[in-house]
């Protein structure tokens, strides 16, 4: 927006995903997405569907597993008195084990989401020749 008087331009402000420097002419299948053709719609819809399914699996696991903890203790309150290595089980579950569980779910999600995106990129980039 405003840079004051114009000194030598040492600093370039990037206001969106870096793209202009390496811009090539869009490949054919990319063009299909840009032009919102039926084929492009199908590509994008398939990516969205994959990512949504992944999100449902990960969040479903999260809410089912952690949401079950209060229910289990509600149904069997005597569980609270049980101890493992001197520490009550509820403390093991919520004080310790919950965190590696969350991290594992997150790592799983990142791996799968990036794989979905790589597959999508390969699909649209491979376009041209065989299309």
């Amino acid at each position: 927006m405003s840079d004051g008087p114009q000194p030598p331009p040492q600093r370039v402000r990037v206001t969106g995903p870096a793209r202009s420097a390496t811009r090539r002419t869009p490949l054919p299948r990319v063009g299909e997405i840009d032009a919102a053709t039926p084929v492009g719609e199908i590509y994008l819809a398939s990516l969205l569907r994959e990512q949504q399914r992944l999100a449902v699996v990960v969040l479903g696991t999260l809410f089912l597993v952690l949401g079950a903890v209060p229910l289990v203790f509600h149904l069997w309150p005597s569980l609270a008195a049980h101890r493992l290595a001197g520490i009550p089980v509820a403390w093991w579950a919520l004080g310790v084990l919950a965190y590696p569980f969350l991290f594992t779910l997150g790592a799983f999600y990142v791996r799968r989401a990036e794989r979905n995106e790589r597959d999508f990129a390969a699909l649209v980039d491979a376009g041209g020749e065989d299309a």
Partner: peptide
Amino acid sequence: GADMLWYPVGWTAGYLVLLVLVAA
């Protein structure tokens, strides 16, 4: 007591939900 352990667990899990739904 132990029911307050849900706060730190929830604050951390919030980042997992954020990762899955909105981060990228």
